[in-house]
Structures are given as structure tokens and as C-alpha cells.
Design a protein around this nucleic acid. Structure first.
Lengths: 215, 215
DNA sequence: GATAGCCGACCATCCGGTCGGTAGTACAGA
DNA sequence: TCTGTACTACCGACCGGATGGTCGGCTATC
């Protein structure tokens, strides 16, 4: 369940919703008061800093990156644990949305969801900042009380979605686990090797089309 | 590269090497002075506590678990980072040794190393304590300076070992990545489902024998 | 007697979280 | 449209506790 680091998210509900994307989370202080926007800024900052420094980042660092004070952060997330839980949920939601959006509307063959899944994972792997993110999140998991439950729920939903995708269960299992493993690999294999990644990706995609590609 | 939590390791070089396995790392203070034994105790304690509490465990907790004082620990590992680096290297070495030992001597068909790899990974996955360990280690990675290099070196060695294993590269890629992914999955799918794990394992093993098992 | 494994006490630092206060913001009423 | 008021996003200062690491000393071992 790798995430994306790209900007924005749900448009803020507040008055001046259409803020110029300029001053979005750069460490610069947020202008005006807008709960939704601040929460987004904090969540994005948390994702970035966790990816960069590990699950042990201090609230202060996250807050500064988001352009608020630590107290300001604590006003929106009552504790560190709550922040990390919200972060986890956010990343999971984003990933789900990304995969849904990546489903090819012209593709009606079995395995279309699996293909979207593979595509999104490998898209994320090109982006260095994102790579370790979901791994480190998983690391924070064991410490933070609620996180495991969120991930389990997510896994359950994927499983049922995949069974409706029309592919042989073993094939789904193999492809998705391999995609997950590939995302793990970029972490300990060092800066991703784009060529190898693409090869893996193409292999998985062809497998999802029912081909048995190797001799 | 999941590790094992089982006791011992290299037999200590000191005088009373054959200590009764009774008082091995249980939090009980070590008796006698033996560098090798103490280092082992600390490394094992570190592996256990990291698996249990995440990469953020304090030196004090690790030390107590190993039956030494924090100062005693610091005497053998000059800093926290050095400890975590040594731990990483240790786990990597153990995993390599486990896989080597798991190679079936009667098995001379292509893919014998891949089969051993798969077997060892899934053996570890049954053990709850071990599950998250290598994941959390990977998390400590991003923080601790030297760790990434250790893991990269390890990955390189596996790659070359696998190319000598006689299987089609794509097949190796698929199987090993899927095994890695499965180990990831036990983390966020919650307490491993033994039946599903065994099914995945058998699928990967049959794939390693050149079969193309699904329709 | 020398080396080194090991310890207790100590220290500077950092971190999560609290508290009291300030100032944008929204809204009611005129 | 202006004003007053209630609300709340946000902040700086602060606190208790924990943590990584140091230091000087003790003693088991060679």
C-alpha cells in the first residue's frame, strides 16, 4: 500500500478554498485559518518527514515542515499516536484512490484491477521520496496502537476486490505479492534501478493478462 | 531477508564456552566475562526488543534484556548506531546461513537455492516474534547511516547467487519478490494466516520446479 | 600487576504534551 | 454595512520524563 507524495488532496471546505498552490507546504507559515488546509499540510509534512527521517521524527520537525507550531499541530491531532494513525489512514486512502483512478476504462478483461494495482505501485517506486514511506509507516505500526487495525482492514478490502477481478486466485496472489516485494526491494537495494523495475513491472503486467511468460 | 530469533550463534571463543543454554539471554545477568558471549547476548536481545517495540527501543531496555548494564552494552558497541548496524549485519548473516543450510543436498535440479530461500522465509513467518523484525530493521535503516549499504551489499550477493541457480531470471525474480512480499504482508495483514501462508509457499515452490501451475 | 569487562552515577539534550493567552473569523443584531 | 461577541485556530513558554553517551572506579581474568 505505497502512497503518493503529490500535493493537495480533498479541497478545503473553508471560505477561501481555492488558495493558490504556491504556498502549499514548503515550511512557509500558512496564511489565514483553515482547518482542512492545515490538516492537509500537516499530513503531507508528516509523510515527507517520515519518509526522510524514519518513524521517529519529532512532532516539532513535522510541524515546522508544515509551517505551523508544534502547539498548532497538537491542536489538530491530539497526540503523536493520533497523528500517525491519521497519516496511515490517509496514505491508505490515497493509494486506493490512485489505483481506482488507474483502472483503464477501455480494459474489460479479467485482471484490470490487478493491472492498475501494479501500475500504481511501480509509479510510486520511481519517486525516491515515496519509496520508503509505506515501509516506515509499517514500522511505526508496531508501536502505534491503532495502526495495525487500519492496515488489516485495508488488506481485507483488497482481497475481496481482487476476488471480483476475474483472475485465478493464485495468479492474483503471485502478482500482487511480487509487486509488494518489489516495493520492499527498492528500499534495501538502494536507489531503484529503473530498468530492472520496468522489467519487473512488465513481467507482472503480462502475467495479469493470463500469459505464462517464461520458459 | 527475514532473520531468525533462535538462540546462540557462533560458539564463544572464551574459556567456559559450553555454558548451559539455561541462562542464555533471559534478562538474567551474565556470569563470568566473555566478550563474544556478551556481544551475542546483546545482539539477540536487540533483535527481540526491536521486533517487539520497534526500531526506537532504548539502549537501556536492550541492555536489561541482555542482562548487562547500559554502560556494559556501550562498552561493546560504541554507539546506538553501531549497535543497529551490527544487528543488521548479524541478521543478514544469519539469514544467509539459514538459507545455505536449508538447501536440500539431494536436490540437484535448477532452483534449489530459490527453494531454500522460500522455505526459510516462510519458516520465519510462522514465528510471530520474527515477523516484523526485518521490516523494522529496514525502518531503522533510513535513520542509521551505515545500514543501507549493508542491505545493498546483501541484495547484490543474492542476485549473483540466484543467477547461478539455473532458473529463468524472470522466474527467480517473480518467486523471490513474491516471497518478500508475503513476508511484508504478514505485517499488515495481522497475525499470519497459516493456511494461506502455506498455500503461497507451495505455490512458489512449485513455480521453482518449473511448473506453470495456474490456468 | 596489568588489561579490560562491566558498573553506577551523572549530564545535556530532546521530546511529547499542557497551559494561558492572542488574534483571526463567523455570525447576530441593528 | 458596521459592531459586538462568541468561537477557535494558533502560538510561546514551560515541564517532567526519558535517552544517548561520558566518566571514574571496581574487579575478574590472564
Amino acid at each position: 500500500m505505497p502512497p503518493k507524495d503529490r500535493d493537495a488532496g480533498a479541497p478545503p471546505r473553508g471560505r477561501d478554498a481555492g488558495v493558490p498552490p504556491k504556498d502549499r507546504d514548503a515550511g512557509a507559515p500558512l496564511k489565514g485559518r483553515d482547518t482542512a488546509r492545515t490538516r492537509r499540510a500537516v499530513l503531507d509534512a508528516a509523510a515527507r518527514t517520515v519518509a526522510r527521517q524514519g518513524a521517529g521524527v519529532s512532532l516539532d520537525v513535522i510541524a515546522r515542515e508544515a509551517g505551523v507550531s508544534k502547539s498548532g499541530l497538537l491542536h489538530h491531532f491530539r497526540s503523536r499516536d493520533e497523528l500517525l494513525r491519521a497519516l496511515t489512514q490517509d496514505q491508505v486512502d490515497r493509494f486506493v484512490a490512485d489505483v481506482r483512478a488507474a483502472v483503464d476504462p477501455a480494459d474489460h478483461a479479467p485482471g484490470r484491477l490487478v493491472r492498475a494495482y501494479v501500475k500504481v505501485i511501480f509509479e510510486d517506486l520511481d519517486d525516491e521520496a515515496v519509496v520508503s514511506e509505506h515501509l516506515l509507516l509499517a514500522a511505526a505500526l508496531s508501536t502505534v496502537p491503532g495502526v495495525a487495525g487500519i492496515l488489516q482492514e485495508d488488506a481485507r478490502q483488497w482481497e475481496s476486490a481482487f476476488t471480483a477481478d476475474g483472475l485465478h486466485p493464485d495468479r492474483v496472489l503471485l502478482i500482487t505479492k511480487a509487486a509488494d516485494g518489489a516495493s520492499l526491494a527498492t528500499l534495501y537495494e538502494g536507489g531503484s534501478n529503473p530498468a530492472a523495475l520496468e522489467r519487473t513491472r512488465d513481467l507482472l503486467l503480462s502475467l495479469s493478462r493470463g500469459e505464462g511468460p517464461f520458459t
